[in-house]
Design a binder for these strands. Structure first.
Length: 134
DNA sequence: AACCTGACGTCGG
DNA sequence: TCCGACGCCAGGT
């Protein structure tokens, strides 16, 4: 109760609301979105929400939601094309360069204002630079 | 009401 | 490092 008029109680609508926060040129994983939505939402649920976009596909940047390995889950070249148009780079294996495009999550202020959770900080972004074992 | 399927993720070989 | 099996939850039939 007492949520902003722009907020909704419908699980799918909340998922879409978070997806809309992902900026052009960046990507988020299904798990990321689920963690931000919280309330028992899991990656699978986000996948279902994306599959059920329908007419909302026009306002929700669905192409920016990918799987954990940086791979594209939809069939056909469409999603990758849209991402490349935004400047998202892919590696030789067809995976998005997560180190350069992975969204850090919504700001704490926005999350709190809409009743969402912020993403936990990701550790060791550049492991290649710290190979010194011993 | 039960079963099948899927725009995922984790674990083990 | 890569591939397959299993577990999850929600919709559609």
């Amino acid at each position: 109760m007492m949520a902003s008029p722009t907020d909704t109680q419908d699980p799918f609508e909340r998922i879409y609301q978070v997806c809309e926060q992902v900026p052009s040129g960046q990507v988020a994983t299904y798990g990321d979105i689920a963690a931000i939505v919280g309330q028992g939402c899991d990656a699978r649920t986000v996948g279902h929400a994306m599959a059920a976009l329908g007419s909302r596909a026009a306002s929700v940047p669905w192409q920016r939601i990918i799987n954990r390995t940086g791979g594209i889950s939809t069939s056909g070249p469409r999603q990758r094309e849209l991402l490349e148009e935004e400047g998202v780079a892919f590696d030789d294996k067809g995976h998005v360069r997560m180190d350069a495009h992975h969204w850090a999550g919504p700001s704490e202020a926005w999350a709190r204002a809409h009743g969402f959770t912020v993403l936990p900080p990701r550790d060791a972004p550049a492991p290649a630079a710290q190979l010194k074992l011993f």
